[in-house]
Amino acid sequence: MTDARKLRSSGNWWTVYGGPLLIGVLSVAGLLTALLSEGAGRYFSWIAVGAPVALTGWFFARRKRR
């Protein structure tokens, strides 16, 4: 079982949690930026907090092409 898993998986910590972690850090940064600054910070917050939506759309579009 262990050998089979090693052969098949690209399953290390980073490939599994890296994506969600990056998007999570970006989200929190965006949430706080909007709270702490007006003006330019707002534009960043829209991009950062909206990233999960955009990323989902991108994954969805990519799936369609297959």
Partner: peptide, 23 residues
């Protein structure tokens, strides 16, 4: 409180808040 309401970053943030809520 604003971090719960999502009302602190203009209309675009509210729309994003709604989309995340739907997700």
């Amino acid at each position: 409180q604003p971090l719960h309401f999502g009302d602190y970053g203009g209309m675009p943030l509210k729309i994003i808040w709604a989309l995340l809520d739907i997700m």
